[in-house]
Design a binder for these strands. Structure first.
Length: 99
DNA sequence: TTAGTGACTCCCG
DNA sequence: TCGGGAGCCACTA
């Protein structure tokens, strides 16, 4: 567990409530590493706290779900449980619910 | 120590 | 509007 990873998870839990999503780039900005979006992806990939840390709320900048370390359908399921609609692998009303 | 990898993003044609 | 390529950062072997 690195400091960077802890920062990612902590920020995600504190800043992204249920029913909202954030982009990898957006999360990178929140932790003051605006160019570290790739590293954010790596951190999410190694997330040892799923589902405590809501890594399923992190999506790509165009509204795509991106990938998921386990089963992508699980990511969709968790999002829908939080009233986030997913269609064709994309977040519906992405611009409205993206932080 | 270094090179390779990846849940990405941005720019340009 | 869309696709390809380059760049970015942290982690791992």
């Amino acid at each position: 567990m690195t400091e960077f990873q802890q920062l990612c998870y902590k920020t995600l839990k504190e800043k992204v409530p249920a029913g909202k999503v954030i982009t990898y780039g957006g999360l990178a900005k929140l932790i003051n590493h605006p160019n570290a979006y790739r590293a954010v992806g790596s951190a999410m990939n190694k997330n040892p706290f799923a589902p405590e840390v809501p890594c399923h709320r992190v999506v790509k900048s165009n509204g795509d779900l991106g990938k998921f370390a386990y089963d992508i359908s699980l990511k969709v399921k968790r999002l829908e449980e939080e009233s986030v609609l997913v269609e064709n692998g994309k977040v519906v009303d992405f611009k409205k619910i993206c932080i």
